[in-house]
Amino acid sequence: MLKIENLHARVEGKDILKGLSLTVNPGEVHAIMGPNGAGKSTLGNVLSGRDGYEVTEGSVIFEGRDLLALEPEERAAAGVFLAFQYPVEIPGVNNTYFLRAALNAQRKQRGEPELDSMQFLKLVREKLKIMQISDELLHRAVNEGFSGGEKKRNEIFQMAVLEPKLAILDETDSGLDIDALKQVSQGVNALRSADRSFLVITHYQRLLDYIEPDFVHVLAEGRIVESGDKTLALKLEEHGYAWVAERDPAEVRA
């Protein structure tokens, strides 16, 4: 589904990603962990096509297509979804209206028929079972005046409606209390399926108690320095990121 090879990326003239390689197969959940400044969020932004991220080397193939050649909206239509670490407030744009416009824009790009408002409302009601957000939030401007938890839930709700093939969760746990974390995780888990993959970017192991990954990767200084199963996250939690750095590279590769 996703094949990242030797990815190098630069932000404001500074090299952040320095040869990152990663393969994600359909249905897999990969956690990307790492200390601050390791390049975790840069990875999410490069994959979703944000301006200001310059790829200097390497390739990203998504479903057989050169992902890096696509505009952000084309990536979305192809099935890439980024749950933002800091969802943007957009005053004056109604949440439901926006979501319908986004879904229909994606369907149009894929050559699928657009949904009318009745069909869309039916879909919304269905998806509310996965990620409950209040009627009031549905009818407010996008993220405007939402609490931190409401913003993150809104991201997952959008994901539920847009049904991406690859969901990138960028520090979705940041700023969430334990109840909100559980709710958001339940929403994500409900969306797991055999043909939907997840890239869960997080600083803390805590999120992975609720969203159980198939693979855990440690990102440090722009590269993946260690990969393992979910027990790797527990080791990190116990020993801290310094533990990875202190270990012999040969041992890491073994």
Partner: peptide
Amino acid sequence: DERALFYLRSRGLPYAEARALLTAAF
């Protein structure tokens, strides 16, 4: 707002549509 523009595009709205939506909201 570039961040808002990217947010809308990352959800699938083409550039022109995202721009129009933000302008109308303004």
